[in-house]
C-alpha cells in the first residue's frame, strides 16, 4: 500500500515537472533549471530513493538539496574586501 502510494507520488511529481517544461519555450528554455528552493527535482529524487528502498533495492543517487550558499556562490572576491565587493570602493582608498 505504502509503496503504491509512493509510486503514485513519484508519477505525479514527474508529471508536474513535465508540465512545467511547457513553460520553457523560446528565450525561456531552461528557465526552471535553477529550481533549487522549491525543489521539484530534489523532491523527485527523494521519492525515487524511497521507492527503491521500499522495493528492497539500493537507493538511486540523488542531486542533493541546494541551499542559499550554493545559489549565492559567486562574489567570492568579497572575502578580502568586506563589506565591499571591489577593493577600490572602500572609502579612503
Amino acid at each position: 500500500m505504502a509503496l503504491r502510494e509512493m509510486r503514485a507520488s513519484l508519477s505525479a511529481a514527474e508529471a508536474a515537472i513535465s508540465a512545467r517544461r511547457e513553460g520553457e519555450y523560446g528565450r525561456w528554455r531552461d528557465w526552471y533549471r535553477g529550481d533549487w528552493f522549491v525543489g521539484f527535482p530534489v523532491t523527485r529524487d527523494i521519492l525515487r530513493a524511497n521507492v527503491a528502498l521500499m522495493s528492497g533495492e539500493a537507493p538511486a543517487p540523488g542531486r542533493g538539496v541546494v541551499g542559499s550558499s550554493e545559489v549565492y556562490r559567486y562574489q567570492e572576491r568579497f572575502s578580502e574586501n568586506f563589506p565591499f565587493l571591489y577593493r577600490e570602493s572602500s572609502p579612503g582608498r
Binding site: 531552461d30 528557465w31 535553477g34 528552493f37 541546494v66
Partner: peptide
C-alpha cells in the same frame, strides 16, 4: 531568492 535567475 533568485534561484531561477542564477542558473538561467
Amino acid at each position: 531568492d533568485e534561484d531561477l535567475f542564477s542558473a538561467f
